[in-house]
Design a protein around this nucleic acid. Structure first.
Length: 165
DNA sequence: ATAAAGGCCACCC
DNA sequence: GGGTGGCCTTTAT
């Protein structure tokens, strides 16, 4: 099952955040992406890849409002991530990790009833479209290593530090 | 239909 | 520390 791409008033915008500038993609159905791109171009390229056929307006004002909700007030706005069944299962499991705690890729695999799909879990976590809100940064390796992070390991560390207190 | 590439893990050296 | 083989999903041929 594949969810529909954003349809109702799709838009994107940039805002600052505790972890550097972020790009938020949203529609009336909720947030469908939160990224930390290096540039305007890489951000729009990413959007283009993820949602071809969709025409987005730029709305930085709303993006800043959302960022404030997320990072300052700790709200969790409505989300609308697009992905396969497997990915949805993984992303749902991520949202059950309490803030300030970590788990491992293997434990997530167990949690979704696919203990052998550890590697695929790693791949699915890497495909997480909504950074921070879907807390893929709380997943580390079984051997204690930090694992990877799409937006750089420094960023992953920062997020974990930020949540520690 | 098939190949190649992953944010992994256990096991060896 | 490092290398290898197995595992499973996704994406691009």
């Amino acid at each position: 099952m594949r969810q529909l791409p954003p349809q109702s008033e799709p838009a994107f915008g940039f805002s600052n955040s505790p972890f550097g500038e972020c790009c938020i993609v949203f529609s009336n159905d909720g947030i469908c992406a939160l990224t930390f791109p290096e540039s305007f171009e890489s951000a729009t390229y990413d959007i283009e890849q993820r949602f071809p056929e969709t025409n987005f307006r730029q709305n930085d004002e709303k993006a800043r409002r959302l960022a404030k909700q997320i990072f300052e007030l700790g709200d969790k706005p409505l989300m609308h991530p697009i992905g396969t069944d497997f990915q949805q299962a993984v992303w749902n499991a991520l949202q059950r990790i309490p803030a300030g705690e970590t788990t491992t890729y293997a434990q997530i695999a167990d949690a979704i009833g696919r203990p052998k799909a550890v590697r695929a879990v790693g791949t699915a976590i890497g495909a997480n479209p909504i950074a921070y809100l879907i807390p893929c940064h709380r997943v580390i390796r079984t051997d204690g290593g930090l694992g990877g992070f799409r937006w750089g390991l420094e960023c992953k560390k920062k997020m974990l530090e930020w949540e520690k207190k």
